[in-house]
Design a protein around this nucleic acid. Structure first.
Lengths: 215, 215, 215, 215
DNA sequence: CAATAATCGAGACGGTACGTCACGTCTTCTT
DNA sequence: AAGAAGACGTGACGTACCGTCTCGATTATTG
């Protein structure tokens, strides 16, 4: 069986050249581009493989040859489109580093690309491959950068040394994701600021760790 | 046009009695039960109206007569199934009140009913009715209770008086929803405790409001 | 499983009425009509179910609901279209009875309906259902009439009493089918006359049965 | 355009040698062999060029390079397989000459090779090239031999001098083809004998030509 | 002996039709 | 009037072949 990809590996192994006509890079790019474009216009369920193929000037079978389902197609398209942005600055302040990146994220969530993210997270609730792709290709790379950012803050004494970094990051990003997905409150830059204030102040070394339990 | 309901109103107006055969309550319940059962087994998109009708021993048209689409059917079914639990206790401590309720929520998210929630939130990303139903029937009622709980904490001096309650609640629940939906880290009771510690300590009056901006 | 038909039985048993919406007779007729029309224009392999459905103003699934494949659809359409003609006259002469009916058959074979027959016989070479349908619905009914015609000839002394009727009929019709299918010589009324002369003279009582074997 | 062949000419003109790599005879034979083998297993429409190429261990393009369509491929393969048998004996008796050859034909029709013949005749109903190939490569050569056989019979006084040879031959072979294609009665050697009896007795000089018309 | 040229196997390509499935509507009889 | 049953038109699905193409490799003739 041919290698299909929800994990982004489009290469056929280490051999220098596979026999037969090589895969058309042009078709691959056209498909991913069309996927993003159409996904931005309509939702996940409105996107049909047939439409993507037609818009890309490609046979339907060519799409199915390389992507086992709509989910992995979207995942690939999304991964390709977000490799560049969303890096963390190094301003000398955790608050500033985080809030700046989080503002960027919010800007993306509110843009046309946000539809794609919500399509992935939405579709991922019934398709494990999709949510896995999101984690591995989008979340994890950024989280690794975030760890470095937090470690700088610890070194500078802005954060407790024993802080649970995943807990802290989820406390910072969870509210963003929640507002983005549940849409009960708007996602504004001011919200980001106050969110950072609230959460980072709880992670400040001056704040003694104190169990709030009354019993 | 007959009155259809995404809002749960299944009655036909103010007239005391409509002519003709009355609606079968038995059918209505069987449909909702089957919806929940099938939704628990598979995802949102795998659930078909035809399956629900067949499983409930009901004609397809009977489903369509009362629910305009899959979303409102699921929303009704979900609302029916969670009207009882998830109340906030009044222990005299914000930390305790919140963490106890949050633990209940996590327990539900991790149960079979969690599949239904993720189906709603997932499907809701492409179906506005669905996410609206989730907000209005599930989130809002609980948030109203949460406001009251927080106000008790303010009154007791456990929280700053000028706290933004939605910000605080999103900071507490957002991480739960994020872990639930993205599944990058496990949802444990210990996570809840440390989450409450982190966020509530940031909302404590002793913590002076301090902009972390370095500029 | 629903009853599908390559054998022409479109009724659902002896019960007076099946539950559910009854089959649309209008759709059924439109499908058969369109099949004949399109089959007359193009060949067996050029006929697509999709085209038939579109031409009949019917969903593709409606065709597939009642006919398992193109073959049985064509067989039904053909059977419906030829129930009336091709009866044997009773002129008082076997020669006349047979040649008149055979001329009718040739006329049909040479008409637009001939395309349908060749489509059935051609397709039947790879689809047993199709050739069976042809035998049972077309060939057999006519052969029964032919038996009666031959028996009249025997009674009148125009044919040997011990004649193998199937052998005789195949000797009369086989050449027609062969010319029709192989197309090496034309099918003319004169050919029919001389064919009857040749074969029927061999079946005449005056002709003593004589083994031609030279050993 | 390169020279393609439905007529079996695989040579490239009169030049003694073309430049470039010469055509692989091994590939050509493997393709024809595989065509026959696969055609024997399934029908005309079930045979795909892709299957033939794969079974022959050959690229699909190699097939298309030398045969313009499935029909000519099958025709070539069939022609290659039946060049040797089915000659007419010269026993001194028309009856014997004919019945012996007809028995051979029936034996082939009933063998695995019969599937190939029926595939060609069946497919030929929608593909003119195919039926033409059958006529020219199979039927015609044998018919030329049959004419000679009949002429010997005329010379010996076993047949009328003014007999229409095509009529006579169609009356002898038509029933065979009909039973072979319609499959309503079995093709046995005894059937051949009685068929020859019936038809040849009608062609005997002692049988006066007599119009059977009663009017 | 290098250059040229046509073949080879392999397999991806843009298409087209397939047969299935779910949709949401409808048409029947029964309750 | 609502119920179960199930056929209806619609349209996307994912598959299978079509006949063409683009590769690197092979095998001949020509310069």
């Amino acid at each position: 069986m041919r290698q299909k990809s929800a994990a982004g590996n489009h290469h056929r192994g280490s051999s220098p050249r596979a026999p037969g006509r090589p895969r058309s890079e042009q078709a691959r790019l056209a498909i991913l581009r069309s996927t993003l474009k159409l996904l931005g216009k309509h939702g996940f369920s409105d996107l049909t493989i047939g439409d993507v193929a037609a818009h890309a000037g490609v046979g339907k079978a060519t799409v199915y040859r390389w992507w086992p389902n709509k989910a992995s197609l979207i995942a690939d398209a999304f991964a390709k489109s977000t490799t560049r942005a969303l890096h963390f600055p190094d301003t000398g302040s955790v608050y500033s580093d985080m809030s700046q990146q989080m503002r960027q994220l919010v800007k993306i969530f509110r843009s046309r690309r946000g539809r794609i993210v919500s399509a992935i997270l939405g579709g991922g609730q019934s398709d494990p491959d999709l949510i896995t792709a999101f984690r591995e290709r989008f979340l994890l790379p950024r989280r690794l950068e975030a760890y470095a950012t937090l470690r700088r803050g610890i070194r500078r004494g802005e954060l407790r040394g024993n802080i649970d970094m995943d807990l802290l990051l989820d406390s910072l990003y969870g509210p963003i994701y929640m507002r983005f997905l549940v849409r009960h409150k708007s996602l504004t830059p001011e919200f980001i600021d106050r969110l950072c204030d609230l959460v980072l102040s709880g992670a400040h070394p001056s704040r003694k760790f104190r169990r709030h339990r009354s019993h």
